[in-house]
Write a protein that binds this DNA or RNA. Structure first.
Lengths: 226, 226
DNA sequence: ACAAGATACTTGATGCATCTTTTTTGACGT
DNA sequence: ACGTCAAAAAAGATGCATCAAGTATCTTGT
């Protein structure tokens, strides 16, 4: 008897959740933006229940916060918290890169190279949205190649929190955002785990610099105002 | 102007979620146990809505799964998935221990030593529940001392998934479960980050051995049946 | 006695009404 | 202009009714 993939039934709340996740990761929300359940319900054409469900899940992910019982907003991100997320990413994406380097096939490498080419093109075209998406796609390929689903989930959650903060800063760094991706691919080809890990760490620390600067700058501005 | 902690207002779904989390972490559920929203609503004395909300959050944490659209169960844990969780814990708790070693005060150390003493006593008394809780308390102290809230959240989620699988295996290992905690405390006293990291890694790998054996054994049994 | 089909029951998803509290708004006084 | 305050509007939490789909039970024919 053939195996059938357990087909994922979709409930409305999952659809809404996925849509909001996409929006978050694409930077289509700004930190502090207010969400209203009834408004979203109208936009999605559903009742409020699936929206509430999705928002509850995002709140659980700490991507949105309840500033007060009736005030739902896109979560802010302090500099300290961003630094923590970065430190965690260094450890976890390092693990993903190491593992991926051990098991990567040439097909895997080709997918990565294809993403890189498209990303290069998107940057050349000045297409910020596509550039951000392809950058994320590259990062998520590593845990996928490595066969680490739990890791993928954790990283997705971290990106949900970073999403609203990277949109503006992304192209500020220009091609720097993907410069470090090339040595990752080279390391995977050679099954060189330490090199893969070091390259992805460089990417996170150096490529993420403009984002950190922007958050730090925003905090400083806020401090002066107070 | 002094900082005020954003006081957490409590909604019912948070109360239910916290209660279910506790139950999960204490191993009071078995993998595969079925949850029924209406039953839980009766037990908690609420309507079904807050229960649904809490269950949705736990599903988002991947602590429970929807086997089919109307069949909510405590999630299983494959050997591969457990190994992945362990690898992630090694990286993240390593980071927590390193950071904690740099900033730990003598007050922090005293708290850890107190937990260790009580844990020793619980094991001597054969009090499995208390032993498990204190073991967890020790592990969660490290990211707290280190001041890493995001890390704490991630680890809590991982423990939610491990909870139903550690109950039986815990005392099987006897004192082995906390043997490696002592060198962690010693390393924190000396502000010796590498030693702290190594000690906690030993604890995760060696202390977690009986859990892995149990999961592997369970899978083997299941494979034979098929 | 047993299997297949029909029936009744369970159960989560969805929608919606209501309640309480918050937020908004606008008038008012300083 | 600006801050204050009160009334009105808004908004999330909670509870509940209904629906559709799955499960268990019962019936029925062999």
């Amino acid at each position: 008897m053939p195996e059938f993939a357990t087909l994922e039934y979709e409930n409305l709340n999952s659809v809404v959740y996925a849509a909001l996740c996409d929006a978050l990761m694409q930077g289509r929300f700004q930190p502090g933006d207010r969400l209203k359940i009834r408004d979203l319900a109208e936009q999605f054409g559903t009742s409020v229940t699936p929206i509430r469900d999705a928002i509850l899940r995002l709140a659980n992910d700490e991507a949105i916060t309840f500033r007060s019982p009736r005030d739902i907003r896109i979560a802010g991100l302090s500099e300290a918290r961003y630094r923590e997320i970065r430190a965690i990413r260094v450890r976890l994406e390092g693990l993903a890169a190491e593992t991926a380097a051990q098991v990567a096939t040439s097909a895997d490498v080709q997918v990565l190279e294809q993403i890189l080419r498209e990303n290069e093109q998107a940057i050349a075209d000045g297409d910020r949205l596509k550039g951000t998406q392809l950058n994320q796609a590259f990062h998520f390929m590593l845990p996928q190649i490595a066969g680490l689903p739990v890791l993928t989930t954790i990283l997705r959650r971290l990106w949900l929190q970073m999403g609203p903060h990277i949109s503006d800063a992304y192209l500020a760094g220009g091609r720097a955002m993907i410069d470090h991706h090339y040595p990752v691919v080279e390391a995977l080809k050679r099954h060189d785990s330490p090199a893969a890990s070091m390259a992805i760490v460089d990417d996170i620390l150096l490529g993420g610099k403009p984002i950190l600067d922007r958050i730090a700058q925003g905090e400083e501005r806020q401090a002066r105002r107070a």
